[in-house]
Protein backbone atom coordinates (compact mmCIF):
# COMPACT_ATOMS: atom_id res chain seq x y z
CA UNK A 1 0.00 0.00 0.00
CA UNK A 2 1.29 3.45 -0.88
CA UNK A 3 1.04 6.03 1.83
CA UNK A 4 0.49 9.56 0.58
CA UNK A 5 1.77 12.41 2.71
CA UNK A 6 -0.63 15.32 2.67
CA UNK A 7 -0.37 17.87 5.42
CA UNK A 8 -3.94 19.04 4.81
CA UNK A 9 -5.00 15.83 6.55
CA UNK A 10 -4.06 17.54 9.81
CA UNK A 11 -7.33 19.50 9.54
CA UNK A 12 -9.12 16.22 10.21
CA UNK A 13 -7.52 16.21 13.67
CA UNK A 14 -9.08 19.59 14.47
CA UNK A 15 -12.24 18.28 16.25
CA UNK A 16 -10.12 16.07 18.52
CA UNK A 17 -7.76 18.95 19.13
CA UNK A 18 -10.63 21.20 20.21
CA UNK A 19 -11.98 18.49 22.49
CA UNK A 20 -8.56 17.89 24.05
CA UNK A 21 -8.06 21.64 24.38
CA UNK A 22 -11.09 21.89 26.62
CA UNK A 23 -10.62 18.64 28.51
CA UNK A 24 -6.83 18.77 28.98
CA UNK A 25 -4.96 21.85 27.79
CA UNK A 26 -7.13 24.51 29.42
CA UNK A 27 -7.29 22.64 32.77
CA UNK A 28 -3.50 22.12 32.74
CA UNK A 29 -2.94 25.82 32.05
CA UNK A 30 -5.25 26.61 34.96
CA UNK A 31 -3.30 24.26 37.22
CA UNK A 32 -0.07 26.00 36.20
CA UNK A 33 -1.65 29.35 37.04
CA UNK A 34 -2.83 28.07 40.43
CA UNK A 35 0.60 26.66 41.24
CA UNK A 36 2.26 30.08 41.40
CA UNK A 37 -0.41 31.76 43.53
CA UNK A 38 -1.81 31.61 47.02
CA UNK A 39 -5.56 31.40 46.43
CA UNK A 40 -8.10 32.32 49.08
CA UNK A 41 -11.27 32.71 47.04
CA UNK A 42 -12.32 33.60 43.53
CA UNK A 43 -11.15 37.21 43.76
CA UNK A 44 -8.26 36.98 46.21
CA UNK A 45 -5.04 35.45 45.01
CA UNK A 46 -1.46 36.43 45.71
CA UNK A 47 1.46 35.73 43.43
CA UNK A 48 4.07 33.65 45.27
CA UNK A 49 6.38 32.57 42.44
CA UNK A 50 8.01 29.17 42.81
CA UNK A 51 7.42 29.03 46.57
CA UNK A 52 4.90 26.14 46.43
CA UNK A 53 7.22 24.06 44.28
CA UNK A 54 10.07 24.61 46.72
CA UNK A 55 7.83 23.69 49.64
CA UNK A 56 6.42 20.61 47.92
CA UNK A 57 9.80 19.29 46.76
CA UNK A 58 11.01 19.47 50.36
CA UNK A 59 7.86 18.29 52.12
CA UNK A 60 8.47 14.92 53.81
CA UNK A 61 4.79 14.02 53.60
CA UNK A 62 4.79 14.12 49.81
CA UNK A 63 8.27 12.73 49.33
CA UNK A 64 7.21 9.79 51.49
CA UNK A 65 4.14 9.14 49.39
CA UNK A 66 6.24 9.47 46.24
CA UNK A 67 8.69 6.87 47.53
CA UNK A 68 5.79 4.66 48.64
CA UNK A 69 4.26 5.04 45.19
CA UNK A 70 7.42 4.00 43.37
CA UNK A 71 8.04 1.00 45.58
CA UNK A 72 4.40 -0.03 45.17
CA UNK A 73 4.49 0.26 41.36
CA UNK A 74 7.75 -1.68 41.17
CA UNK A 75 6.41 -4.43 43.45
CA UNK A 76 3.32 -4.66 41.26
CA UNK A 77 5.45 -5.09 38.14
CA UNK A 78 7.86 -7.49 39.83
CA UNK A 79 5.00 -9.82 40.80
CA UNK A 80 2.54 -9.40 37.96
CA UNK A 81 4.86 -9.69 34.98
CA UNK A 82 6.49 -13.08 35.84
CA UNK A 83 3.18 -14.39 37.17
CA UNK A 84 1.31 -13.26 34.06
CA UNK A 85 3.87 -14.94 31.80
CA UNK A 86 3.64 -18.14 33.86
CA UNK A 87 -0.17 -18.16 33.68
CA UNK A 88 -0.07 -17.56 29.92
CA UNK A 89 2.36 -20.46 29.44
CA UNK A 90 0.11 -22.78 31.42
CA UNK A 91 -3.11 -21.89 29.61
CA UNK A 92 -4.22 -24.48 27.01
CA UNK A 93 -3.57 -23.41 23.42
CA UNK A 94 -6.54 -25.00 21.66
CA UNK A 95 -9.89 -26.63 22.21
CA UNK A 96 -12.81 -25.99 24.51
CA UNK A 97 -10.60 -25.58 27.55
CA UNK A 98 -8.78 -22.69 25.86
CA UNK A 99 -12.01 -20.66 25.64
CA UNK A 100 -13.05 -21.60 29.17
CA UNK A 101 -9.72 -20.55 30.64
CA UNK A 102 -9.70 -17.31 28.63
CA UNK A 103 -13.10 -16.39 30.07
CA UNK A 104 -12.06 -17.33 33.60
CA UNK A 105 -8.86 -15.34 33.37
CA UNK A 106 -10.71 -12.30 31.97
CA UNK A 107 -13.30 -12.13 34.76
CA UNK A 108 -11.24 -10.03 37.23
CA UNK A 109 -10.66 -7.43 34.51
CA UNK A 110 -14.39 -6.76 34.30
CA UNK A 111 -14.76 -5.82 37.95
CA UNK A 112 -14.61 -2.10 38.81
CA UNK A 113 -11.93 -0.83 41.19
CA UNK A 114 -14.23 0.10 44.04
CA UNK A 115 -15.93 -3.32 43.90
CA UNK A 116 -12.51 -5.02 44.04
CA UNK A 117 -11.74 -2.85 47.05
CA UNK A 118 -14.99 -3.80 48.78
CA UNK A 119 -14.57 -7.51 47.99
CA UNK A 120 -11.10 -7.58 49.53
CA UNK A 121 -12.06 -5.38 52.42
CA UNK A 122 -14.63 -7.96 53.48
CA UNK A 123 -12.66 -10.99 52.34
CA UNK A 124 -9.60 -10.02 54.42
CA UNK A 125 -11.38 -9.12 57.65
CA UNK A 126 -10.16 -11.22 60.52
CA UNK A 127 -13.61 -11.76 62.04
CA UNK A 128 -15.96 -12.41 59.10
CA UNK A 129 -13.66 -12.57 56.05
CA UNK A 130 -12.67 -16.01 54.80
CA UNK A 131 -9.11 -15.00 53.87
CA UNK A 132 -8.38 -12.96 57.00
CA UNK A 133 -9.92 -15.57 59.28
CA UNK A 134 -8.02 -18.43 57.59
CA UNK A 135 -4.68 -16.63 57.78
CA UNK A 136 -5.23 -15.82 61.45
CA UNK A 137 -6.34 -19.33 62.33
CA UNK A 138 -3.15 -20.89 60.95
CA UNK A 139 -1.28 -18.75 63.45
CA UNK A 140 -0.23 -15.71 61.42
CA UNK A 141 -1.25 -12.43 63.00
CA UNK A 142 -2.95 -10.54 60.18
CA UNK A 143 -5.02 -7.38 60.49
CA UNK A 144 -5.00 -4.81 57.71
CA UNK A 145 -6.75 -2.17 59.78
CA UNK A 146 -4.05 -1.91 62.43
CA UNK A 147 -0.86 -3.25 60.88
CA UNK A 148 0.82 -1.14 58.19
CA UNK A 149 2.60 -3.98 56.39
CA UNK A 150 -0.59 -6.08 56.38
CA UNK A 151 -2.47 -3.19 54.77
CA UNK A 152 0.32 -2.76 52.22
CA UNK A 153 0.28 -6.50 51.49
CA UNK A 154 -3.51 -6.49 51.04
CA UNK A 155 -3.42 -3.59 48.56
CA UNK A 156 -0.70 -5.40 46.62
CA UNK A 157 -2.63 -8.66 46.67
CA UNK A 158 -5.73 -6.86 45.38
CA UNK A 159 -3.85 -5.42 42.47
CA UNK A 160 -2.22 -8.75 41.65
CA UNK A 161 -5.61 -10.45 41.75
CA UNK A 162 -7.18 -7.74 39.63
CA UNK A 163 -4.57 -7.14 36.95
CA UNK A 164 -2.31 -10.18 36.50
CA UNK A 165 -4.95 -11.34 34.02
CA UNK A 166 -4.15 -8.41 31.78
CA UNK A 167 -0.50 -9.44 31.48
CA UNK A 168 -1.56 -13.07 31.09
CA UNK A 169 -3.97 -12.28 28.25
CA UNK A 170 -1.44 -10.05 26.46
CA UNK A 171 1.23 -12.77 26.74
CA UNK A 172 -1.27 -15.44 25.66
CA UNK A 173 -1.97 -13.55 22.44
CA UNK A 174 1.77 -13.02 21.97
CA UNK A 175 2.45 -16.73 22.40
CA UNK A 176 -0.25 -17.71 19.91
CA UNK A 177 1.41 -15.49 17.31
CA UNK A 178 4.60 -17.59 17.29
CA UNK A 179 4.62 -19.79 14.17
CA UNK A 180 4.70 -23.56 14.71
CA UNK A 181 7.89 -23.79 12.60
CA UNK A 182 9.89 -22.22 15.44
CA UNK A 183 8.88 -25.02 17.79
CA UNK A 184 9.57 -27.67 15.14
CA UNK A 185 13.08 -26.31 14.63
CA UNK A 186 13.60 -26.33 18.39
CA UNK A 187 12.45 -29.96 18.61
CA UNK A 188 14.87 -30.97 15.86
CA UNK A 189 17.66 -29.36 17.87
CA UNK A 190 16.37 -31.15 20.99
CA UNK A 191 16.07 -27.85 22.82
CA UNK A 192 15.01 -28.05 26.45
CA UNK A 193 11.75 -26.38 27.44
CA UNK A 194 13.78 -23.69 29.26
CA UNK A 195 15.76 -23.02 26.07
CA UNK A 196 12.50 -22.77 24.10
CA UNK A 197 11.20 -20.27 26.62
CA UNK A 198 14.42 -18.29 26.81
CA UNK A 199 15.30 -18.11 23.10
CA UNK A 200 11.94 -18.40 21.30
CA UNK A 201 9.04 -17.39 23.51
CA UNK A 202 10.52 -14.61 25.64
CA UNK A 203 12.07 -12.62 22.74
CA UNK A 204 8.78 -12.89 20.85
CA UNK A 205 6.86 -11.63 23.86
CA UNK A 206 8.99 -8.50 24.14
CA UNK A 207 6.66 -6.14 22.32
CA UNK A 208 3.51 -7.21 24.19
CA UNK A 209 5.41 -7.08 27.47
CA UNK A 210 6.48 -3.48 26.86
CA UNK A 211 2.82 -2.51 26.43
CA UNK A 212 1.82 -4.61 29.45
CA UNK A 213 4.49 -3.03 31.65
CA UNK A 214 3.50 0.45 30.46
CA UNK A 215 -0.19 -0.15 31.23
CA UNK A 216 0.49 -1.71 34.62
CA UNK A 217 3.01 0.93 35.62
CA UNK A 218 0.73 3.81 34.70
CA UNK A 219 -2.33 2.27 36.28
CA UNK A 220 -0.59 1.38 39.53
CA UNK A 221 1.04 4.81 39.57
CA UNK A 222 -2.42 6.39 39.67
CA UNK A 223 -3.89 3.95 42.21
CA UNK A 224 -6.53 5.62 44.34
CA UNK A 225 -9.70 3.61 44.84
CA UNK A 226 -8.43 0.35 46.35
CA UNK A 227 -6.47 1.74 49.32
CA UNK A 228 -9.18 4.39 49.76
CA UNK A 229 -11.87 1.73 50.10
CA UNK A 230 -9.71 -0.62 52.19
CA UNK A 231 -8.41 1.68 54.91
CA UNK A 232 -8.67 5.24 53.56
CA UNK A 233 -4.88 5.34 53.19
CA UNK A 234 -4.15 4.04 56.66
CA UNK A 235 -3.21 2.80 59.12
CA UNK A 236 -1.36 6.08 59.60
CA UNK A 237 -0.18 7.04 56.15
CA UNK A 238 1.10 3.60 55.20
CA UNK A 239 -1.05 3.17 52.09
CA UNK A 240 -1.51 6.83 51.17
CA UNK A 241 -0.23 6.89 47.61
CA UNK A 242 0.39 9.95 45.46
CA UNK A 243 -3.08 10.55 44.11
CA UNK A 244 -4.62 10.22 47.54
CA UNK A 245 -2.11 12.55 49.17
CA UNK A 246 -2.93 15.01 46.40
CA UNK A 247 -6.70 14.69 46.83
CA UNK A 248 -6.43 15.19 50.58
CA UNK A 249 -4.47 18.37 49.96
CA UNK A 250 -6.57 19.79 47.14
CA UNK A 251 -10.08 18.87 48.21
CA UNK A 252 -9.68 18.03 51.90
CA UNK A 253 -7.64 21.06 52.92
CA UNK A 254 -8.41 23.23 49.90
CA UNK A 255 -4.70 24.09 49.53
CA UNK A 256 -5.02 24.74 45.80
CA UNK A 257 -1.58 26.28 45.25
CA UNK A 258 0.56 23.53 46.82
CA UNK A 259 -1.69 20.82 45.37
CA UNK A 260 -1.35 22.36 41.90
CA UNK A 261 2.44 22.50 42.26
CA UNK A 262 2.56 18.89 43.37
CA UNK A 263 0.23 17.66 40.64
CA UNK A 264 2.51 19.29 38.06
CA UNK A 265 5.53 17.48 39.53
CA UNK A 266 3.46 14.26 39.41
CA UNK A 267 2.58 15.09 35.79
CA UNK A 268 6.24 15.61 34.85
CA UNK A 269 7.14 12.19 36.30
CA UNK A 270 4.33 10.53 34.32
CA UNK A 271 5.36 12.41 31.19
CA UNK A 272 8.97 11.23 31.53
CA UNK A 273 7.98 7.59 32.05
CA UNK A 274 5.54 7.73 29.11
CA UNK A 275 8.20 9.22 26.88
CA UNK A 276 10.69 6.49 27.81
CA UNK A 277 8.16 3.78 26.95
CA UNK A 278 7.20 5.58 23.76
CA UNK A 279 10.86 5.63 22.72
CA UNK A 280 11.29 1.93 23.50
CA UNK A 281 8.19 1.01 21.45
CA UNK A 282 9.41 3.18 18.57
CA UNK A 283 12.84 1.54 18.62
CA UNK A 284 11.19 -1.88 18.52
CA UNK A 285 9.11 -0.89 15.50
CA UNK A 286 12.22 0.33 13.72
CA UNK A 287 14.10 -2.87 14.49
CA UNK A 288 11.39 -4.92 12.72
Amino acid sequence: MNKITNNKAWWLVLPVFLLVAFSAIVPIMTVVNYSVQDIFDQNTAYFVGAEWYREMLRSPRLLDSLLRQFSYSFSVLLIEVPLGIAVALMMPAKGRMASVSLILVAIPLLIPWNVVGTIWQTFSREDIGLFGWAVNSIGIDYNYASNASDAWFTVLLMDVWHWTSLIALLCYSGLRAIPEAFYQAARIDRASSWAIFRYIQLPRLKSVLVIGVLLRFMDSFMIYTEPFVLTGGGPGNSTTFLSQALTKMAIGQFDLGPAAAFSLIYYLIVLLVCYLFFTVINLQDKAK
Binding site: V26, M29, V32, V36, Q37, Q42, A45, F47
Partner: peptide, 15 residues
Protein backbone atom coordinates in the same frame (compact mmCIF):
# COMPACT_ATOMS: atom_id res chain seq x y z
CA UNK B 1 -10.93 34.08 31.72
CA UNK B 2 -10.96 35.22 35.35
CA UNK B 3 -11.57 31.69 36.65
CA UNK B 4 -8.31 30.54 35.12
CA UNK B 5 -6.49 32.91 37.49
CA UNK B 6 -3.93 34.11 34.96
CA UNK B 7 -0.74 35.83 36.06
CA UNK B 8 1.69 37.75 33.83
CA UNK B 9 4.39 35.16 34.37
CA UNK B 10 2.32 32.12 33.39
CA UNK B 11 0.81 34.01 30.44
CA UNK B 12 4.34 34.81 29.26
CA UNK B 13 5.37 31.18 29.79
CA UNK B 14 2.56 29.77 27.67
CA UNK B 15 3.03 32.48 25.01
Amino acid sequence: MNWMAWTELTAAFFS
